[in-house]
Amino acid sequence: MSRSSVTDFDRRNRDWYIDRLVQAVVFIGGISAIVFIIGIFVFITREGFSFIATEFDVSGFFLSQNWRPTSESNPTYGILALVAGTASVTGLAMLVAIPFSLGAAIFIAEFATGRVREVLKILVELLAAIPSVVWGFIGLSIMNPLIIEWFNVPVGLNVLNAGIILGLMAAPIMTSIAEDALKAVPDRYREAAEAMGATRWQVIAKVVLPAAKNGLLGAVLLGVGRGFGETMAVLMATGHSVNIPTSIFDSVRALTATIAAELGETAVGSPHYQALFTIGIFLFAITFVINLTADLIVRGIRNK
């Protein structure tokens, strides 16, 4: 090989073409994700658009609890009860998931060592991979009779059932993210606090948790996003009846479950069909905002 020849500078060899090809493939892959998201948004918006343009009135849609889309004489499309259903279930789910996931994350990140730690991490990831219909099945066939028996209520498919199921569903992913946040706290902080005579709990409470608070908040927000978006388990465990809950033993219906249950039975293009898509736009907007906030918060700690 002649090293002195400067004609090499202009030759496009195999490596050069491979490099270009890989760049192109990766570029297409990356761009397509964005294109798909925009495409989905455009599709949902278009389907719901004529409803928003014609029949939609803000107070009637958001502030009425009358969801009667199949009424022959006077169909109404008020989603207040559905929002209340989703919010109550998600709220209870967070009450369940936050202590579990923070506790698990603190244990895995700060206390567990060696093999225990590895096994726990794998188990948490395994739990996160359980399909939601399985969780719904657990709610339907195990939690339902237990709730009826323990609390002596007529129906076990209610806010309590769905909240617990959804909480357990959201906990693994929240644990994973919270653990990452705790691990991102540099060890020198822990060492410095330990050297001052802080006990392990003092190190965690005074130094590690405050330092990781953005990441932990991000984990919680992602859990909330999961709660809003979850469909199948919520459909199966809530009881699916339109209702503004006054206690945790009331059955409710979630926004997502409404779309899943009704979309197949509506005529394409009908007001009902378009109202469901409007709910879709609403959900899309909410989960987008929640995830964006979570992402910005988690990013915030990395940049500091």
């Binding site: 060492e191 130094v207 405050p210």
Partner: peptide, 12 residues
Amino acid sequence: IGVVFPLPVGLP
């Protein structure tokens, strides 16, 4: 016992 480490550790 007070300890000062090689690299300064300003706690967050």
